[in-house]
Nucleic acid binder design. Structure first.
Lengths: 149, 149
DNA sequence: GCTTGACCTAGAGTACACTCTAGATTGTTC
DNA sequence: GAACAATCTAGAGTGTACTCTAGGTCAAGC
């Protein structure tokens, strides 16, 4: 007998607004939501876990459209396992790429901060030495246009 | 004598559209753009570098409003060095947080993929063992609501 | 049985960051 | 000097992901 929850509790537990949870359901991102006699949505722990996972996907830049596709595959059951794997692996690759991109940008930001620190310490703009070297090395890795996230 | 560029070349070099570059300028994100006799924007290598840096900031989730603030400080010159550092350090902290968040999500995605791999290999849904352990460990790290990016 | 709070639906509104259109001007090439 | 490409301005339109409003229903406590 799974303990059942109303939407308000789910909102508290997942840290999302009631509106957002209903909107997610309308977008096809929350399968298996039952209703009680009065027409109110009834959730279980399972839904809380699912919503948390959805947040992980969203929080790593997966679009709602892709989350919808993934959710649809999960609804299909074990027949769509391969497709589920493919979708998730594609996302994994994107996450890896993004971590790499963010890490590279971090190096640049750190170099700039060191440059500023030196500037403040010396009271004069330092020669653009190591800072600029880091920068140019980073530029070389930029093959083409980068889409923002 | 810095080689000068028109907006089209800058667009090609930075991988952004001509529209986007003009829009960035209108948003106060590109200081020091001169005009030629015919009213056309004239850029130098320096602007290309600046735009690339702006892309790094955008690509790591800095909002246009914050980029505008940073650009304004740069325009002010060495008097606003401290504020520049503060702003950039705050962004550095956000980038670090995000890398951590993405890395954590990656672990989860990997666990789910392993679970799927096992499922496919065995032909039956495996007991939710190590996969679920990783998951729960990750859940414990989630203190509260997480904003998507 | 009446108030109060949580819930319901449908749809409008918002924030952000572009992206594109229209109509005009400028510079170059034949 | 005509054609054509590239540029200009002002402003409208787009996509994404919510976020909120309006107007109503339902259930529990007094």
């Amino acid at each position: 007998m799974p303990h059942s929850l109303h939407i308000g509790e789910v909102a508290t537990r997942t840290g999302r607004s009631v509106h957002a949870i209903r909107w997610y359901e309308a977008q096809g991102l929350v399968p298996g939501v039952e209703r009680d006699g009065g027409g109110r949505r009834v959730y279980t722990e399972h839904h809380v876990g699912w919503l948390d996972f959805m947040d992980r996907l969203r929080g790593t830049g997966m679009s709602v459209a892709q989350m919808r596709a993934y959710t649809a595959l999960v609804k299909k059951g074990s027949g769509a396992l391969d497709e589920r794997r493919t979708l998730l692996r594609a996302h994994q690759a994107r996450v890896l790429e993004n971590i790499a991109r963010w890490t590279e940008a971090l190096t640049l930001i750190e170099a700039k901060l060191e440059f500023y620190d030196e500037w403040v310490a010396k009271g004069a703009r330092p020669p653009v030495g190591p800072h600029r070297r880091v920068w140019r090395a980073a530029q070389r890795h930029r093959k083409g246009p980068q889409k923002a996230l």
